[in-house]
Design a protein around this nucleic acid. Structure first.
Lengths: 126, 126
DNA sequence: CCTCTGTATCGACAGCGATCGAAACAAGCT
DNA sequence: AGCTTGTTTCGATCGCTGTCGATACAGAGG
């Protein structure tokens, strides 16, 4: 039960705007070891990108103009359409994407702050 | 089978120094969509950090002096010793950590280039 | 050589998750 | 209302993986 250093994380409360209790947090991982709770949160975000199909879907959205894309524009990733929907839901639940219906189509957008938190956490420079 | 943009990734060959065919690559994800092959490689790296226990172990190593730590220093994460060893192996196989035996103890170190590649990929600024 | 401590591997089990087809829901059209 | 197209949900299957205890391996010191 020993732990050398613990760093308090700045958890941005996501004002219940969509995804279920999202996460953002985290100074560079070199700054100190994660608590069990923070590790849980961050791991969930990394897990969202831990599947090749999801990573491609995410990359398609992120590289689209405005960081936003219609499902119909990105669903060509070699799996069935229900599977695409399932993966988009996971990315949304993890807080990496948000979705909005506009008429017939549903558009997914990247959530910049959450992605930035992951990037910052892996930043090793000191 | 349509794809808007494709970006060639700079894959650094890891000169068979340890982990099995490691990965580094990747311009910011906003630059263009990942190919199936690159998505596979990057997803494997994110998967390594997608477990809370692994993320804590990684954070303990990264936050240690010199980005290096003995197993004995970090194995207090609430799971059995074999499980710790199993997770460290996964981090090593993913290329995020390297290991070296020095006498009785085994030391794990972070592989900065690989971690930097993940961080850079998630960098959304343009 | 034996023992002790540190670490890795093995084998088993349980739960999670990626995938699909089928079906439901949503919105626009005629 | 019915049809069509886009998207999500449901149920089932099946492989993957996190976990453990037991065991094996490695090095240091008696």
């Amino acid at each position: 039960m020993s732990n050398s250093q613990m760093v308090e994380l700045t958890v941005l409360e996501p004002d219940g705007s969509g995804a279920e209790s999202v996460v953002p947090c985290c100074p560079p991982i070199t700054a100190g070891e994660l608590s069990a709770a923070d590790a849980e949160k961050m791991a969930a975000m990394f897990k969202a990108l831990s599947d090749p199909v999801r990573l491609r879907l995410f990359s398609k959205v992120a590289s689209h103009a405005g960081g936003e894309a219609c499902v119909c524009d990105i669903s060509d990733v070699g799996v069935s359409q229900p599977t695409v929907s399932h993966h988009l839901k996971k990315l949304k639940d993890a807080g990496l994407l948000t979705s909005e219906r506009r008429g017939t189509w549903v558009y997914y957008s990247v959530e910049p702050s959450v992605v930035a938190a992951m990037s910052a956490m892996l930043d090793l420079r000191n």
